[in-house]
Amino acid sequence: MPELRSKQIRVRRLAAALFVLLGFLLLALPALAQDVPVTDDEVNAVAKDLFCPVCESTPLDVCPTQACADWRELIRQQLSEGSTPEEVQAYFARQYGDGVLANPPKSGFTLILWALPVVAVIVGGVFFTRYVRTLRTSAAEVDEEFEEDVVETAVPIPAKLIAPDDYKSRLEEELRNR
């Protein structure tokens, strides 16, 4: 009986030790996540889709300013903490505005900027088609009018005024001479 009791106590102690160990592991997880090394290429892959806040239209991955160096370091830190590139970009948009995104979301005024070239192509296509049709119609009308004029004003040409076909006459002559 005392043996069974001491066995139970040992099992309980072991279970408690395991719980404590598990607790330490859970606490250490964020620290482990922070240790994930992030390469410059991974940072630049995110940075190339962001714009420098100081120099207009300069991608963040190639900008030499201190502000951009700080931003790249922030990207590195966030990636090392486990954020995805999309989450990093969303953070930058929230913190610094959509203007820092190389590909701003297609909504609001930006949507019009995206839609305008498509609309311009469609409208241009419609007008071009109509223009070509107009040209064809007017050309056909001109042809018709010309044919009508030719028929109305046609005067038979006397046979003697028609120039003899030189080639044909030479051919006939050669055939005759054979």
């Binding site: 019009i112 900027l113 609309v119």
Partner: peptide, 16 residues
């Protein structure tokens, strides 16, 4: 309709 759409878009773009 096409002209209205085009002019509307241009107006919004200009405003922006």
């Amino acid at each position: 309709a096409v002209w209205v759409i085009v002019l509307g878009l241009l107006a919004v773009l200009g405003w922006g």
